[in-house]
């Protein structure tokens, strides 16, 4: 259980890894917007998005198989939405039985959209550690300080939660073993029975989490923690030429998508 790496971060040194986390988050949002901008049935726009993902993957030193693996997790959702489109879309010409040409096109369209979005988001979590993402979000949210939103506390809660995920996974493992040693049965019975069997795992986990929180608070107090006032940051994020290049590439993608949309419109006319 120890090696569960949350957020599937792939630690290596690369162009994309060294980019500023804030920029990466913003660029991924821009990329997702780009994917949504692709007008209906204009598949060339998706081609541009795919090209973008491929270029980004090459620059990130992450093997393609790692990136593609992410689709496995949402395969069910993809197939499900494709089936709904294929069998229940009634508009367009009927090709065979109840399947229409528009249904097929729509299915392909949705599959491409979901896949591309997931590939992009995966690339972010593969190249940016959870801590960097938390820090990036804190920095991006910092204007909210002016409306009295506790940005620092929010980010600290987030990073402590991330820090404790492996610790708590270990703990769950230990509790399950302890309960099994006393004859608890987690494997048989229907879904309801199995869910009920988890109660003796969750309650000790909850209690020990409270104790951990208490001890952590003491340790933080002892290390002079007093909120965000007068606090400095050791890690500073700074923009480099890499971020500029990433920005240019993403801007290029969006222009490309818009241009290709227009290109189709011209073809139709």
């Amino acid at each position: 259980m120890k090696d569960v790496s949350f957020g599937q971060y792939y630690p290596t040194q690369s162009f994309v890894h060294k980019m500023d986390a804030r920029v990466k988050i913003l660029l991924i949002i821009a990329y997702i917007v780009g994917v949504f901008l692709v007008a209906s049935y204009h598949f060339l726009g998706f081609g541009a998005c795919l090209l973008f993902v491929i270029i980004a993957t090459i620059f990130s030193n992450v093997p393609f198989s790692k990136v593609l693996k992410s689709i496995k997790g949402i395969l069910f959702i993809i197939i499900f939405s494709a089936i709904i489109q294929i069998f229940f879309n009634k508009s367009g010409k009927v090709i065979w039985w109840i399947i229409t040409d528009e249904g097929l096109l729509n299915a392909g369209f949705i599959v491409a959209r979901i896949t591309l979005i997931v590939l992009g988001a995966t690339l972010l979590t593969l190249t940016t550690s959870p801590v960097e993402i938390a820090d990036g979000i804190e920095s991006l949210m910092s204007p909210l300080k002016y409306i009295k939103f506790p940005v620092h506390e929010f980010a600290l809660i987030m990073s402590i939660a991330l820090r404790f995920i492996p610790t708590l996974l270990d703990e769950i493992d230990r509790i399950i073993k302890a309960q099994k040693a006393r004859g608890a049965d987690f494997e048989s019975g229907n879904l309801f029975k199995r869910a009920k069997a988890l109660v003796p795992v969750l309650i000790p986990l909850l209690i020990s989490s409270f104790r951990r929180a208490d001890e952590l608070a003491d340790a933080m107090d002892s290390r002079c923690y007093a909120g965000s006032k007068n606090r400095t940051r050791y890690k500073k994020m700074h923009l480099t030429y890499r971020d500029l290049l990433g920005f240019i590439l993403t801007a290029g993608l969006i222009t490309g998508v818009v241009f290709l949309n227009g290109f189709y419109v011209l073809l139709v006319i």
Binding site: V131, S159, L162, R163, T167, R212, L216, A219
Partner: peptide, 8 residues
């Protein structure tokens, strides 16, 4: 485990 605040 209960004293470490950060993941690095």
């Amino acid at each position: 485990d209960n004293q470490l605040v950060a993941s690095i």
